[in-house]
Simulated assay, not measured.
Amino acid sequence: MMKGFGDMMKQAASLQGKMQEVQEKIAAMEADGVAGGGMVRVTLNGKGYASKVSIEKDLINPDEGEVLEDLIAAAINDAKSKLEEVSQEEMKSLTEGLPLPPGMKMPF
């Protein structure tokens, strides 16, 4: 019985190392969010922080501030959803083949 426990601990340590690698890979990623047909672009890093914002000069009009605000928010949300999708795929590849209960998400 102890042999099985030792194997389980080795597997857990290996998984922890792989988890750290995946988290570092995700943190190094970038995702571009686009709105207004490409007139607003936002780049988020893997931790969800904006690293770049690009706005077509035609959109910078004091009378239409709300439109610009909405497009910036939409571009951020687009980038965030792309990051989440890629992160989930990375985590899924990490946990493939593990005997995890249904619905259990990583990281814990």
Rank of each mutant, 00 (worst) to 15 (best):
M1W: 05
K3S: 13
D7W: 00
D7P: 01
M9I: 04
K10F: 02
A12W: 03
A13Q: 15
S14E: 15
S14Y: 01
L15P: 03
Q16C: 05
G17C: 07
K18D: 15
E21N: 01
Q23E: 12
Q23D: 12
I26T: 08
A27R: 10
A27D: 11
D32Q: 10
G33K: 00
G37W: 07
M39P: 08
R41K: 15
R41P: 10
L44V: 03
L44E: 10
N45L: 07
N45I: 05
G46M: 04
K47V: 13
Y49F: 13
Y49I: 13
A50T: 14
S51L: 13
S51E: 15
I60P: 05
I60C: 03
I60T: 00
N61W: 03
N61F: 07
E64P: 04
G65F: 07
E66S: 14
E69Y: 05
E69D: 13
D70K: 04
D70R: 07
D70V: 00
L71T: 00
I72K: 00
I72A: 01
I72W: 06
A75P: 12
I76K: 08
S81I: 08
E84W: 02
E85N: 12
V86D: 10
E89T: 06
E89P: 02
E90A: 05
K92E: 15
K92Q: 15
S93K: 15
L94W: 02
E96F: 00
E96I: 00
G97Y: 01
L100Q: 11
P101L: 08
P102K: 04
G103Q: 09
M106H: 11
F108K: 12
